[in-house]
Design a binder for these strands. Sequence first.
DNA 1: AAAGCGGGGAG
DNA 2: CTCCCAGCTTT
Length: 229
Amino acid sequence: MPRPAPADAREFSRRLRAWFRRNARELPWRDTRDAYRILVSELMLQQTQVSRVLDFYARFLERFPDLAAVAAARKSQVLAAWRGLGYYARARNLHKLARRVVREEPHVYGGALPATPAELRQLPGVGAYTAGAVTNFAYEKRAALVDTNVARVLRRCFAPHLRPKRARDVTRLWAIAEAVLPRTGRAAWAHNQALMELGALVCTARVARCSRCPVRSICTSADLESGLR
DNA sequence: AAAGCGGGGAG
DNA sequence: CTCCCAGCTTT
């Protein structure tokens, strides 16, 4: 099982974060540590591009400022605010989640979102990625996360033979993500954000813009700008 | 392991 | 036109 050497992992993360500090887009969900707001952004961003989520995010939060507001609303009202975004199961799951955390099992949750991947995974609509994202992006606790961006970047950089379609290879990518993750939650936050930003802006699905990549000297697939895969 | 779920944008 | 997108649930 291919895993980057610790020295390569540190260098990879260090360069990645340095690049992020200079090239990060300003996105509303990066300015908050409110777990609810992070959760809403992650749900909206599932299989949905940033540019389109931006059209809905602020308006949705204005209508539903916190989890209690979602729990207090009818499902149809949440769906109405979601209209146009697609994948409406996400809105139904958010409503179910809010009802459970705020109303049905407040003794379990204290009315707030949990802060560990295992607990978050219990909630409807929250899978492995979203659980890691809330844990790290909201609570700044150290947690690995793998979405399509991260999977692509890590695969091209460290394990080009893996095929993210296969479940077993996805497990390996999570292991690599864990192996390159910095120790502290704070550094892990920047690392994860940077990894996803690199996948969105530089190391994209159709085009690998290696000439602009901060980790090309480490990357296994570097300068195969049309290698894709 | 594979299908189903939305709708818009990039190439 | 085809593929892709800060995935998850169900079959």
